[in-house]
Simulated scan of single mutants.
Amino acid sequence: MSYFAVDDGAHSHPKFMAATNAALGLWVRTGSWVAQQLTDGHVPGTVAKLYGTPAQARSLVAAGLWHAAGHECPRCPQPRNGDYYMHDYAASGNKSRAEIKARREQSAAGSKRHRDRQAPKAPPPGEQLDLGGDEPDPPAPVRAPIRPDWQPTREDIHAAQVARGDAGLPPLTADQIDSVTTKFIRRQTDDGRLAVAWGGRWREWAENERTASPPAPGSNVVPLARAAGGSTADTRAAAAFQLAAQLEAEEN
């Protein structure tokens, strides 16, 4: 960013005293524009008209703060007809266009060197970049079709029986669990469904399975009778585990 320099003694300088306050406002505004556009003190006539009036421009020329074309100041260059030049622009502490551009290029080069130092270094050709850690990342879970021999776990059966008890439904017998599992596998296969694990979906089927009639006497059902001093939840959990143990014993 460039700046337009104003001396701290300008307020009482004879040339400032000779110009009107409105003209000095034009001088400051055009000075800011000149510094931004790097014109080295040249003020286009269009800019002078944009920020001020012809009377204000004449006041600056009369006070010696601006020069019009054809001026006789030996230290200042000649502007084009209709333009102005700010008297002693460079001598008043304002940087030239060349100085500002050189400073900007130097600053940009310094910023680039800093970014280059902060950037991660690429490994030499043939050398693998060490990102830390010796163990490879575990493989991502794979969604696959259900196996024809898939079976629910003891935990799946327990969770389904407890949920049925909470819903006021009777527990499933071993035969009913086998039937639910067979229907579940057939439906998932027919629909072409894929999953990482099937326990959760099976529990939903088992929880919602509607039995046609109460189990016949002698069926392999663990009753959910409340044990003395025990809670209903404890009783349901115990019954579910007993059923799972019976199923496991039958398989063996």
Rank of each mutant, 00 (worst) to 15 (best):
M1R: 15
S2C: 01
F4V: 07
F4A: 02
V6M: 12
G9A: 02
K15G: 08
A18D: 06
V28C: 06
G41K: 11
V43W: 02
T46I: 06
V47N: 00
K49A: 13
A63T: 09
A63L: 00
A69K: 12
G70R: 14
E72T: 11
E72Q: 13
N81V: 10
G82T: 08
D83Q: 06
Y89F: 15
E105T: 02
S107H: 10
R113C: 06
H114E: 05
D116Q: 15
R117Y: 01
A122Y: 07
P123W: 09
P125D: 05
P125A: 09
L129S: 04
D130C: 00
L131N: 10
G132Y: 03
E135D: 14
P141F: 08
P152Q: 01
R154I: 06
A159T: 03
A160D: 01
Q161C: 09
R164Y: 01
R164E: 10
G165Q: 13
Q176A: 15
Q176T: 05
T181Q: 04
I185V: 14
T189H: 12
D190R: 15
A195Q: 05
W198R: 06
R203S: 05
W205E: 07
W205G: 03
V222F: 02
R226N: 04
G230P: 01
D234V: 06
R236K: 12
A237C: 00
A240L: 01
Q242W: 08
Q242G: 12
A244I: 00
A244D: 09
Q246P: 03
L247G: 09
E251P: 00
